[in-house]
Nucleic acid binder design. Structure first.
Lengths: 339, 339
DNA sequence: CTGAAAGCGCTTACAG
DNA sequence: CTGAAAGCGCTTACAG
């Protein structure tokens, strides 16, 4: 009597148990037609009883679909990244797939991983979250795995990228509405705490901010760089307020974390929010409603859903292979107590 | 002239380019000794120039390490899960590995995935985040992949689990300190908004709450079930306050999200915090400091780090294979404005 | 120090 | 409708 090996059964063992060959098991697993109903039933029964799951390695090596979806982000963070991944997972799970998550803060590293996802055949396809814009200097090659971009879109000049799907948000309209709201409320000296200049949303929001401000006479706009995170924002804002006698009356932050950091500084300086200075965020992360933060609602979970669905449409051949889908999500402004 | 195939080079092509066989390339890639320095240099150069990355499928099929670390959670959520995964990723990235993330809210599904991780050879090892306690009714089998438990620990009766590492937190001490703090502040009628009873932390905190309360004469404790999320908490707390003329003067929540939901209800009812009723959370998620929430600091990122390191120690044979490491992290209480 | 060969678990034309 | 066979990209004893 020997110890039961925990090694799971492979396709050959399942085949033996079902009295067929592995070819037939493979067909049943893939739900291919052309298997006799009784045979199929028998095989399915054995599969169920033994909890058989085909090895992704065997499949992957043959170049077949593995169900693995690559998710590439700059870093994992509560809020934006986490919520998008939650959305992606919702959809991927429905199809029995799994997430291969890789985070690469460095631009070169990011691009490297993307190449490895795209060309490497390790995943069925990949979803890129807020990639650095330098990515588009890389050419997409014929035969690369399908990719979907979250919160980014390649410039039309980018080589080979015209078949890559994208999900973006309408930063321009949202910023225009947001600035309009602030002006209507009587704020006149606006400061934008800009996001990273190497990602699309960072660029677009800064640009839209200046454009929106320029539409309003008597309103001034300043773009302040370097406040990309709550921690950075705290020192940048603190320093700015101390250096400028004439305080701004509105901080328009790139995202909610930055806005919350800013609020902390203002509170510590006993500056009234929103009477003296108002603050707006961006994203509407789960916590912002609680914090009473006026912000722009970015549907993060939905973005994850849509990204996954777009990828699956491509994978399933429901999209023309030589074309790309582009979806732009609306972002309503969400006015709460900080404005 | 033909289009350049984007398919990445495989080990044989690299070998040809370097004028050796794939055996040698394999040795170089794995940094094995016993390769002539000049040969090694030549191969390494070719690898670098062509961005060669060995296929995980090829490796995996041979049963070798792939660098893939399985992460199994109930669901992705900003806060607890996201921060732990961030911690895990920090360590896994250092070693050039990747995360295979799977989320399974259902208990059966969770257990199924765990079996597939443990026995399936799809990952080098797995980290389980807050697994359902039913998991321990499954026997760990000889030859299963190493597993590390985050925020859980198998009962000593659990079959085969004595070689599985675990990271837990000292719920008992933290709860005792927390209740002690509340009593010292003058609160007497405490209500615990309990967490899920099917996970260790939920059980332990409820138990520790009642124990701690019983140590203080004239202090009463009630455990309220069903408020596991912010949304659930809102209705449970609302209903409770309306059903009971005599209000409690302290809500001790299972986690910060529940506490924040509770605070929203109290605010909407114009109940003073902390004068009339105080609220405490648990976890100290990134936003709790901002919210001024008194809570228990659970080092989530560090827990991820430690879990990954523990797993790697096991994988690298630095831990005895027939033993398990158990680490219990301390949780200081973090007093802010809600108590 | 290096190479030739077997084999991991699958899928997929090809035969029958 | 089913099976036999090749081969995906690796690693690893085994030979030399």
């Amino acid at each position: 009597m020997r110890t039961i090996a925990s090694k799971p059964l492979n396709i050959i063992e399942i085949a033996k148990l079902a009295g067929v060959t592995k070819s037939t098991v493979s067909r049943v697993v893939q739900k291919q037609s052309g298997v006799a109903p009784e045979t199929r039933a028998r095989v399915e029964h054995v599969i169920r009883v033994h909890h058989y799951r085909p090895s992704v390695f065997g499949r992957g090596l043959k170049g077949a679909r593995t169900g693995l979806i690559g998710v590439l982000g700059r870093w994992m963070e509560s809020g934006f990244t986490a919520e998008i991944i939650r959305g992606i997972d919702d959809e991927v799970k429905k199809r029995g797939g799994h997430l291969w998550c890789t985070f690469a803060p460095g631009i070169d590293e990011y691009i490297d991983f993307w190449r490895s996802f795209a060309g490497g055949g390790q995943v069925d396809g990949a979803i890129l979250i807020a990639p650095p814009l330098d990515l588009y200097r890389q050419a997409v090659q014929h035969g690369d795995k399908p990719t979907v971009l979250c919160a980014s879109k390649p410039p039309s000049s980018a080589k080979g990228w015209n078949t890559t799907g994208s999900l973006t948000v309408d930063n321009q309209t949202a910023m225009r509405n947001l600035v309009g709201h602030l002006v209507a409320k009587g704020y006149r000296r606006l400061v934008h705490l800009a996001g990273p200049p190497d990602i699309l949303d960072g660029q677009e929001r800064s640009k839209a901010f200046m454009e929106s401000v320029s539409k309003h006479p008597h309103v001034t706009g300043t773009v302040l760089q370097g406040a990309w995170t709550a921690v950075l924002a705290k020192s940048v804002v603190h320093e700015y307020l101390h250096a400028h006698r004439q305080h701004p009356d509105a901080f328009v932050a790139f995202n909610d974390a930055v806005a919350l950091g800013t609020i902390e500084v203002l509170k510590s300086m006993r500056i009234g929010i929103p009477e003296e200075i108002c603050v707006t965020g961006w994203d509407d992360i789960p916590f912002s409603a609680f914090a009473g933060l006026s912000t722009v609602h970015l549907p993060m979970v939905e973005m994850g859903w849509e990204a996954a669905r777009m990828l699956f449409r491509k994978l399933d051949g429901k999209t023309r292979p030589d074309e790309a889908e582009h979806l732009t999500l609306d972002m309503p402004i969400q006015i709460r107590q900080t404005t």
